[in-house]
Nucleic acid binder design. Structure first.
Lengths: 145, 145
DNA sequence: TCTACGATCTCTAGTCACTAGAGGAGCAAG
DNA sequence: CTTGCTCCTCTAGTGACTAGAGATCGTAGA
């Protein structure tokens, strides 16, 4: 029933310093201590930490998790807010995906045009030096010679 | 020909504190100063900063950019290294995309199962509380009643 | 020439979510 | 009693900036 911080760490996969960090920012409640000043955790701490871990794995910010925990503490209220938080996060994730995909396309383009010659002719470096060249191809691009 | 830090900022779109920051970490060379201690930039600074900005926009780390600048300073050497840096970055980007897409799927799943009832029945919160439930559907999931 | 105002200067500290390390103390087994 | 592991607190570091304080510079108008 009672866990040391090491137990909690093993059971949740959250590192010990991280557990202490969560406590320091108020995300995990302060547990009681032994006579020797060691933290003693119970079932509620374990559950809470699993919740946090799960949400972090899904990329929720600490701020969002704080809000979700608040919500979970009021079981009688409607869960619109939880839905809202999750949707906002999803939108964020989708925006990041779109950005990264654009980036992927540009990088691929850059790499494909590297002729593996000398630095002075390197398309990667020249594209970086001249912003306009990187975004799209000029007419000569498809047929550079 | 000579630019103030403000000019440089406007021309490159890099904020003034960021320019000073780049100087402080050695990414942008220290410019000469006026009698009144103001920085005076020339063409080379402008080019360098444009290069940095472009590379940052493409998500290259400062470390990678430092390496790319090093390379650009040796025009006679083969550009294999530049190619390598770009490819590594591309791999990074692709891995991030894959991670985010997995995350997107999970979030979508979570949100779709929110019945908009009360917090106590909220699938989003219960999924977060019980890690196993979030990853995939148990048999009852498709037909919960 | 004086003055007002914007631009710039340095320096420190804050952001996010941890991570690393120092230096010390508790605790169980041999 | 000692060894070795776990745990304690505290500070500082990560990346790439960003924000703010308080001082100084430079210039345009009165």
């Amino acid at each position: 029933m009672a866990h040391t911080i090491g137990d909690l760490s093993r059971e949740t996969g959250v590192k010990i310093p991280t557990i202490r960090y969560y406590e320091s920012i108020g995300l995990l409640p302060e547990p009681p201590r032994t006579a020797g000043n060691r933290r003693v955790y119970g079932r509620t701490h374990l559950d809470r930490l699993n919740f946090i871990r799960q949400a972090r794995d899904l990329g929720f910010s600490i701020e969002a998790i704080t809000a979700l925990i608040q919500l979970a503490g009021h079981p009688d209220q409607p869960c619109v807010d939880a839905d809202h938080i999750a949707r906002e996060h999803l939108t964020d994730v989708q925006r990041k995906i779109a950005q990264l995909q654009a980036l992927e396309a540009e990088l691929t383009h850059l790499i494909e045009h590297c002729a593996h010659g000398r630095v002075s002719e390197c398309q990667i470096l020249t594209a970086l030096a001249h912003p306009s060249a990187a975004k799209g191809c000029s007419p000569e691009c498809e047929n550079p010679n």
